[in-house]
């Protein structure tokens, strides 16, 4: 179960991994996610987005950034190894129909979950404009896959090392002027917040996909709760997608920092471990 088929390092901290998970590959729909755990006794459960899946081969592809203990450890796994526990697909699938023109904005590794959504929107007959952004050229992912789907692909980097030197909100605003029918924004919470603020004056329905702290991912713990339109919603079962104009991003961003001190320690330790590992290999 969950045997890793392929692993590619996309940038210093970003990895693409394909593993066998036939049930998930068969059932998953755009917008859904999985939860993984690397050790049944002591591992933590973390939500990860699905970048792609192949129902015939029975494989699922994830793209993740090594930010915490589990993702660092996962990054060290090689093809042939198994991911001990994988649960999914979780969450509500994206609502897909022919809206007309859809602007899809992906920031950082948010491009990964955006990929199946953009793909489905394109398949449903939408004109799909894709904006992808990252801090620098090295961190731009899935460019070719997105280019294959997009009617128009706009790339921007914060430092101008590739594509336009701009934040994604700049081309998004230009697109808003052309009156698209839908916006989808997935990326770091701050990016989604400002994308929602960009589209708000234009009244363009904006879907965001939230990635919060979770334990079970099935509605049982409520750790993922967010305030949407003044009401409490669970990202794992009510989401992960919500109307970006209604999400209380400030509270969500603060909640993500609930365990910050403990996570910083873990991150620091992981980097030390990786460094020691690198030293050993020399």
């Amino acid at each position: 179960m969950n045997r890793i088929i392929e692993k590619t390092q996309l940038s210093q901290e970003v990895f693409r991994m394909t593993f066998e998970a036939p049930d998930i590959a068969r059932e998953r729909k755009p917008g859904q996610f999985i939860i993984i755990q690397l050790d049944t006794e002591y591992g933590e459960r973390i939500p990860l987005t699905i970048a792609d899946a192949d129902s015939e081969k029975g494989t699922v592809t994830i793209i993740f950034q090594a930010v915490g203990k589990t993702t660092h450890l996962l990054a060290s796994y090689e093809p042939g190894q198994h991911i001990e526990n994988v649960l999914g697909p979780l969450g509500q699938p994206t609502h897909i129909e022919n809206f007309g023109t859809a602007v899809c904005v992906g920031g950082g590794i948010g491009v990964a979950p955006l990929h199946p959504i953009a793909q489905a929107l394109e398949k449903a007959g939408n004109r799909v404009i894709i904006i992808i952004g990252a801090r620098n050229k090295e961190l731009i992912i899935m460019e070719e896959e997105m280019r294959a789907i997009a009617d128009e692909l706009i790339i921007c980097t914060d430092d101008g090392s590739y594509g336009r030197k701009a934040l994604v909100t700049e081309p998004l605003k230009e697109q808003c002027e052309k009156n698209p029918d839908l916006a989808v924004a997935i990326g770091p919470p701050v990016m989604m917040k400002f994308c929602a603020e960009t589209t708000r004056p234009y009244g363009i329905h904006t879907v965001v996909s939230l990635n919060t702290i979770m334990v079970d991912g099935t509605g049982m713990c409520g750790g993922c709760r967010v305030t949407v339109g003044g009401e409490t919603r669970f990202v794992c079962v009510d989401g992960p997608e919500f109307d970006g104009h209604l999400v209380d991003f400030d509270n969500m961003i603060r909640r993500l920092g609930s365990y910050k001190s403990q996570e910083d320690d873990a991150h620091h330790k992981c980097h030390l471990d990786l460094k020691i590992e690198a030293e050993k290999q020399k």
């Binding site: 334990v215 049982m220 713990c221 409520g222 750790g223 709760r225 967010v226 305030t227 409490t232 209380d248 509270n251 603060r254 909640r255 920092g257 609930s258």
Partner: peptide, 10 residues
């Protein structure tokens, strides 16, 4: 939804 509020389940 403040930080430090948990369901007993969680």
């Amino acid at each position: 939804n403040l930080i430090g509020v948990f369901s007993a389940n969680e």
